[in-house]
């Protein structure tokens, strides 16, 4: 594998890891809210979260590019904060991936939270547990399978993204050139051998991650 391949692989893992971590932090309160809210806006928020599943990545990437660009709403904010614009940077890629992979983290978490009988929190309250304590001692452990599924799906999905990366991140080595883009480059250059090596690596990696997912999805043993 060439130094370019290794750099792309490292960048991909870094991106997927960082995005998964941020998504678990942001997705947990969002999923909790979606699981328990009776707000009228809830269906709209749920649809918004789920949009990346149905939209072609290029559509999502296009709008992100416009929004993050020098005249876009997010671009104006980042410029006024002195951060410059985010397209074609690693930070922009992270932001785009967070939106792209959001449903894959939020949905399993939401399902896991919704499956916990609310009577258990009442029981915990009568056993002197404060609200945060109830969440940490009841919701968190009972939603553990949901967290594992969410983390693994978020990670795996970010590993495989291509369209959004190409639109928002472009193709800058060490900054935005992830494995999927590097493979595309190899194929463009008719270097099928190099493409094979990297493609097989990604395939194996994705397969292993999914095996991990399905192993923990087996009947929950206590």
């Amino acid at each position: 594998m060439s130094p370019g391949d290794l750099s792309a692989l490292w960048l991909t893992l870094k991106l997927a890891g960082l995005v998964t971590l941020i998504l678990l932090l942001l997705g947990t309160p969002l999923a909790w809210w979606l699981a328990h809210s009776r707000c009228r806006l809830k269906p709209a928020i749920e649809a918004l979260v789920a949009l990346p599943i149905v939209l072609p990545p290029s559509v999502l990437g296009f709008y992100l590019l416009v929004a993050l660009g020098p005249h876009g709403p997010i671009g104006l904010v980042t410029q006024s904060l002195g951060l410059g614009t985010l397209p074609f940077t690693f930070a922009g890629l992270v932001l785009a991936s967070i939106i792209y992979s959001l449903p894959f983290v939020v949905q399993p978490l939401q399902q896991a939270f919704a499956a916990i009988p609310p009577g258990l929190y009442e029981a915990a309250a009568t056993l002197r547990a404060r609200p945060l304590d109830r969440w940490l001692s009841i919701a968190l452990p009972l939603a553990r399978p949901g967290f594992l599924t969410a983390g693994i799906l978020g990670f795996a999905h970010t590993l495989g993204e291509f369209g959004v990366v190409l639109m928002v991140g472009g193709n800058i080595e060490g900054e935005t050139r992830v494995v999927s883009v590097q493979i595309y480059d190899h194929v463009e250059a008719m270097d099928y051998g190099a493409a094979h090596r990297l493609a097989l690596t990604l395939l194996t990696l994705s397969f292993l991650v999914l095996v991990l997912l399905y192993r923990q999805r087996q009947p929950w043993r206590l």
């Binding site: 009988p117 009577g119 258990l120 009442e122 029981a123 309250a125 009568t126 002197r128 547990a129 404060r130 609200p131």
Partner: peptide, 14 residues
């Protein structure tokens, strides 16, 4: 509830 010294047994054991 968590500040009340109460014991509660529900219909289902919970």
């Amino acid at each position: 509830t968590h500040q009340r010294r109460v014991g509660y047994v529900f219909q289902e054991a919970r």
